[in-house]
Amino acid sequence: MLVYTLVMLVPIFWSLGYTVFEGNPIIGFTFVGWDNILQLFTDPKVGDALLFTLKYAIVLTVGQVLVGYGLSLLYVFWLKKASGVIRTLVFFPVVLPTVAVALLFQALFAIAPQIGPVNSLLNFFGADSIDWFASGATAFWVIVIMDIWRSMGFYAVLLYAGLVDIPEEMFESARLDGASGWKLVRHIVIPLSLPVLFSSIIFSINGTLKVFDSVLALTNGGPGNTTTPLTLYMYQTSFTYGEYGYGSSIALMLTILCLLVTLFIFRSSRRDLTKG
């Protein structure tokens, strides 16, 4: 308890304190008042980073949950009892270290010194090789693909657990009423698995807003700062440029963002549930 308070709670307020200072522990602090907060709104890099974070969070959340949901439907309705082995295999990337996965994907999408498998595949179909890490737009998609690859098994198992809980009688009576295939999914499965769907969305957004490892290891925010999320920008400001105060302000902004998004989803999901 004491340790937790010391290491977790005290620093949160300490960090709040930092936002009104400038400098770092080695050269000392000077009081600057609201300057750091104001700087947040005028710094174009913060805007870029914020935009990237939001774009990434939205694309990845949609991707993760959709792929995961598709997989879980596959597990439940198509593989049925035999899905154990496949579930286990697809879940495996979840426990892999991010750095290792990032290095692997760097090599997979590489163009020099050796043409990686992905570009080989493109060549095979007649397309030209793409230098994936040369522009922010393509690098962004590599990050997204990598993170979906890494997390799809996780969301599949999470949603699978929710789907298995739906009582078998529901399907039987729906089939008797003449529903089948897509209709069954649309009217029975989706409404009944809404709660677990919402919790995975919340979890996914919370995780993706804090993205750090995969971006750092895969592109290090580059080329330029086209793939720099808020977390990485904060890290660079604090430790590369030694501006602790400003770094704290960015961290504060991120925290508030996470809380707001979670609250927002929580609110809207609750309203939907009471209506439906």
């Binding site: 930092y18 522990p25 750090f212 809380l259």
Partner: peptide, 27 residues
């Protein structure tokens, strides 16, 4: 209250506590 504090701990990103901790360890 304590339960609530722990809950808050899950939500706060690691970056938030990084700088103060760095200072503490440094000192």
């Amino acid at each position: 209250t304590v339960l609530l504090l722990f809950l808050a701990g899950i939500m706060v990103p690691g970056q938030m506590i990084l700088l103060p901790l760095f200072t503490i360890y440094f000192q």
